[in-house]
Amino acid sequence: MKAPVIEAKDLNLTFETNDGPVHALKDVNLTIDRGEFVSFIGPSGCGKTTFLRCIAALEQPTSGVLTVNSMTPENARQERSYGYVFQAAGLYPWRTIAGNVKLPLEIMGYAKAEQDERVRKVLSLVDLEGFGKKFPWQLSGGMQQRASIARALAFDADILLMDEPFGALDEIVRDKLNEELLKLWARTEKTIGFVTHSIPEAVYLSTKIVVMSPRPGRITDVIDSTLPRERPLEIRDSPEFLAIAHRVREGLRAGHAYEE
């Protein structure tokens, strides 16, 4: 049995605010294996983004154990174990698309020729061949987000963390990008952590769905998807898909009932 890629044991994170402590994460236990596609779903304040940020060492847990590739998140960050995609594409307006994708490679000190080679490769991976010389403002929102995914893939980390990457895009573009993301995942065999608000998106993409609820932020259900790895968009009308979506919805509702 291989070691899990991400493992959280009794993870707690409490923010001290002026209104008293806020339990962003409470007793979170989760194991993510290599090659899984894990979605985190829940209402605002349920800690899904916070958990992703803990994995990326952008937040420090208050207690508990969290390992990434069997290292502390901080060491994993130094080892450049993951690419992170934020909700906003956040491309530098003064760099071309190719220049933006090159940014992590420059920082990590790749040789010039390899930089160009990798940029070419990941741009084709996200279907942006021929757009390398364009500036971000010349691209649509969906294309910008694809470029930001290419940027996260450029240095070939085996984990991809995505924080509502398609949240700001319209439904049609989102469908298309979801489909492409699945293909990309199949081709690159990365482990993906994906935060979303959308039940269909979570069910369509994931091998494992983590349902979370707020105050305190905690996991209420972990659903292992029974859907096949090969997923055409039509699968969303299948009874199996709807059954999983139903269970996610139940989980979300249970989390809310707790509050009242």
Binding site: A56, L58, A88, I107
Partner: peptide, 10 residues
Amino acid sequence: QQLDLLSTYN
């Protein structure tokens, strides 16, 4: 977010 991004690149 832009500073976080660079932080993920260490």
